[in-house]
Design a protein around this nucleic acid. Structure first.
Lengths: 110, 110
DNA sequence: TCACTATATCATTATATACTTATATCCTAG
DNA sequence: CTAGGATATAAGTATATAATGATATAGTGA
């Protein structure tokens, strides 16, 4: 009866995933960017993203060789309200504003 | 950084606890009433209530020999909004409306 | 006081979660 | 097509969680 909600809340019940959401609230990001910012391995990041996706909180799109994740626009209302107030750490915001994946990974610029 | 929120969401990330919240949104209830309504043992109910309490979502008060639990009035805003929309199962509502703990525990009412 | 009821805690167990490393898959460039 | 980077999946492990039955604690009322 409450399965979907429980799954959503479980997805939110982890500080790493909350940080990922805070990052995505600054801007969309690809997996390799999140890997740069988080203190865990690439597979761990991938697994967190999968949970967030299964919970309907993020979705993905491809651009060049990268898979970008973004907050889902159709996220349940109250969660969306909450996420909107989630403040990313200042240094994370700075990083996201001053880096772009092209520079990070192979080419330059977006 | 997001520890408190993660704990709250983890507390919400279980269907049994969501059902407990839905019950408490109908009216305050004591542990023995929740035990009647839920398909799990009394210790399990007690442990769920402890998690909800630690997460700041419910609190307790004593009345006669019973410990009643109620939704915390100062629950975080967005969660309170969400809980307000949580609909208890109709048969649960009926049970809560037609029973009271005095009848339950000392007499043997319907 | 004692007996009883209500609730909490303890010890244990099975399953879920979060991480790791290793490997597979998928793109895109050349 | 092939090489290499980007990402996902697999397998394994340690910790967390949710349940149980047994037991401890607390309050009530005779």
């Amino acid at each position: 009866m409450y399965d979907d909600w429980a799954e959503r809340f479980r997805a939110l019940g982890d500080t790493t995933r909350l940080r990922i959401l805070s990052l995505l609230s600054v801007r969309d990001a690809c997996v390799c960017e999140l890997v740069e910012l988080l203190p865990i391995s690439q597979p761990a990041v991938s697994q967190h993203l999968r949970k967030l996706k299964q919970a309907g909180l993020v979705d993905e799109y491809r651009q060049k060789s990268w898979t970008f994740y973004r907050l889902r626009a159709d996220m349940p209302l109250h969660i969306a309200d909450w996420v909107r107030e989630l403040k990313a750490d200042e240094s994370d915001v700075l990083w996201l504003q001053t880096h772009h994946v092209g520079a990070l990974c192979t080419n330059r610029d977006t």
